[in-house]
């Protein structure tokens, strides 16, 4: 009754609320942990220490170069048709405006097709606002990640995006974006749903909208570290079942949800097993990815560095879309692999966590590894409100629940233990 033993210990026993309490201590102590910052490195050292405090000492770090983009001053003022402050968050690695800012008329597009159909002379010198209505993150995030390049190709002086979120209390949501070497780099930022919709209404009425955008930032590279913790298997220690989350966060909010929750349930898995003296046949490896937010930098480094031993990865898991009530797993793998995972998930029907969702590319960091053919899964959870808080000042401990984190930690630990202990490898 291994599964029951784990759940009793985590939800009723000595580990009850431990995941939440440790996450809260961590988040309160360090706050936001942007890529390349000293606070991120200090937080990595802290995670290593609290793991050693649990008498788990098989820990290595791997250094890599990461972006260090520092947000400085950001201000947008609407000058026409009336004066208004526009709440703003620059997008990751955005270039600065000139000191006096960029003052220009706004042209609004709800999709890239409209942009492509519009003559360059109608866009040249203007500020482009993309205002897609949020459907799913996957469908709309391209307007954040590629908007600056698409707008610059048409001669825009800056680009803005309606925050990629389904709900807002005038909250801008930051995020990554990617420049192309072949087009000019223009300043780019997110504005709130409310302000984007206001500008859209003016625009549709034929009223000229003029903004002044002032943004400054700096950019350099620094050294950071992926953290790898092994809880060695007793029969096949070379074979790995990986649980993971990313330790870096955006510079706004505190990264309690994104991805503090995923980080701490992946820390908890070997800790819980060690405390219960449960040691599976294969090794359970916890990885704390660095620099996920600016482009999965840590994951790419790990995949490249460990490529020649990737045949040892039996299964890889990640939680980076919330640690609310667990519902099951989002699984990539062949049919036999999915059948084995589905059979394991049947053990969790009593907590309503037995759903298997099929996906070719679950997770964020682990997608880098899954796309090489390694089976993997991300946590399927009741995250309907995840994008309310994502990449905002609202990503704080108040989003997290001790009871839900206990369920996630127990589920994550039990699933990884069973996969690591059954007689059959997960087939590829």
């Amino acid at each position: 009754d291994v599964k029951e033993e784990i759940f009793r210990y985590v939800t009723e026993g000595d580990f009850k609320s431990k995941t939440y309490d440790e996450l809260a201590k961590f988040v309160d102590k360090f706050g936001a942990r942007p890529s390349g910052s000293q606070v991120l490195e200090d937080s990595i050292d802290y995670m290593i220490q609290i793991t050693k405090d649990e008498d788990i000492n098989d820990i290595v770090t791997e250094e890599l170069e990461v972006p260090h983009w520092i947000r400085e001053q950001e201000k947008i003022t609407m000058l026409e048709p009336r004066s208004k402050h526009i709440a703003v968050l620059g997008l990751g690695k955005s270039v600065s405006t000139p000191p006096e800012g960029i003052t220009a008329e706004v042209i609004v597009f709800s999709n890239f097709d409209q942009l492509a159909e519009t003559p360059r002379q109608d866009i040249d010198g203007k500020i482009v606002l993309f205002d897609p209505i949020f459907t799913t993150y996957a469908e709309t995030v391209v307007y954040r990640s590629q908007g600056a390049v698409k707008a610059a190709e048409k001669g825009a002086t800056a680009s803005l995006v309606r925050s990629i979120a389904p709900f807002s209390i005038n909250t801008p949501h930051t995020g990554s974006q990617y420049y192309s070497d072949s087009v000019p780099k223009i300043p780019t930022a997110a504005i709130t749903l409310e302000d984007a919709d206001l500008i859209r209404r003016f625009y549709d009425r034929g009223e000229k909208v003029v903004l002044n955008i002032k943004m400054t930032s700096s950019y350099e590279t620094k050294i950071s570290r992926n953290t790898i913790i092994d809880y060695k298997g007793i029969e096949n220690p070379e074979k790995l079942v990986i649980v993971s989350g990313h330790i870096d966060s955006w510079d706004v909010g505190q990264g309690a949800m994104d991805d503090g929750g995923g980080l701490f349930i992946s820390w908890a898995a070997p800790v819980i097993l060690k405390r219960l003296n449960l040691r599976p046949k294969r090794t359970i490896r916890s990885i704390f990815w660095t620099a996920e937010e600016l482009g999965l930098i840590g994951a790419y480094d790990y995949e490249e560095r460990h490529r020649n031993e990737s045949n040892n990865i039996n299964f890889i898991m990640e939680s980076d879309e919330g640690t609310f009530s667990p519902l099951g797993l989002v699984v990539a793998g062949n049919e036999e692999a999915r059948c084995i995972i589905a059979e394991i998930l049947k053990l969790f029907e009593s907590i309503n966590a037995s759903t298997l969702v099929e996906s070719d590319s679950p997770g964020s960091d682990i997608a880098v590894i899954v796309k090489t053919g390694i089976p993997g899964a991300s946590l399927h959870n009741a995250n309907e409100k995840y994008f309310w808080f994502h990449h905002t000042e609202g990503d704080t401990m108040n989003v997290e629940s001790p009871e839900e984190l206990d369920l996630c930690a127990a589920f994550w630990t039990a699933v990884s233990y069973i996969i690591a202990d059954i007689s059959s490898d997960i087939p590829r």
């Binding site: 009754d1 291994v2 599964k3 029951e4 989002v330 049919e335 036999e336 999915r338 059948c339 084995i340 589905a342 059979e343 394991i344 049947k346 053990l347 759903t355 298997l356 969702v357 099929e358 996906s359 039990a414 069973i418 202990d421 059954i422 007689s423 059959s424």
Partner: peptide, 26 residues
Amino acid sequence: KSVAKSLNKCQTLLSDDLINEIASYK
């Protein structure tokens, strides 16, 4: 993403021994 409606072939792909082994963790 789509919720797996059915994994019909699981009974043929997985041995009874493996199914019973997994069930034993409950």
